[in-house]
Amino acid sequence: MKEIRINVNGVFRHLIVEDNEILLDTLRTRLGITSVKAACWRGECGLCTVLIDNKPMKSCMLLSVEVDGSEILTAEGLYNNKRARVLMESFVKHGAMQCGFCTPAFVTTAHSVLSSNPDADDQEISEKLKGVICRCGTYFQIKEAVKSARAFYKDGSPETF
């Protein structure tokens, strides 16, 4: 058992976790964060992607103890970020989802792509989103959605409401 202090979607959490506890389980089962999905449990599908100190990582392959001290963002939290909200709206408008099971992972990853490079081109967007699988095949729509949200990630556009 280990004590960890993390900030999840803006809320500080002080948790006691098992040594072998996986972050995916901590987030889903203990904190009720259901946007974090899983489909392979071994780092392939990317549906468990969360932002850890603003970097996308696959939470099924992380021990909860390892993220002690980090700031974790998921789709639920990004809803309160103005830029990410625009990105989400772009996903909605472009129909960049079918069953929706992978959508939060794409939104989360795309947010980090545009945050680090608002000028990301088709190829970069594609390459950076490679770690998430959408079996419904909404990839064309996802690319369009991300591209058309780029302007809102440029300097000057606010992050908070």
Binding site: G43, M61, K130, G131
Partner: peptide, 8 residues
């Protein structure tokens, strides 16, 4: 792998 895994 992929860029997400490369962050880890």
């Amino acid at each position: 792998a992929d860029p997400t895994i490369r962050n880890m």
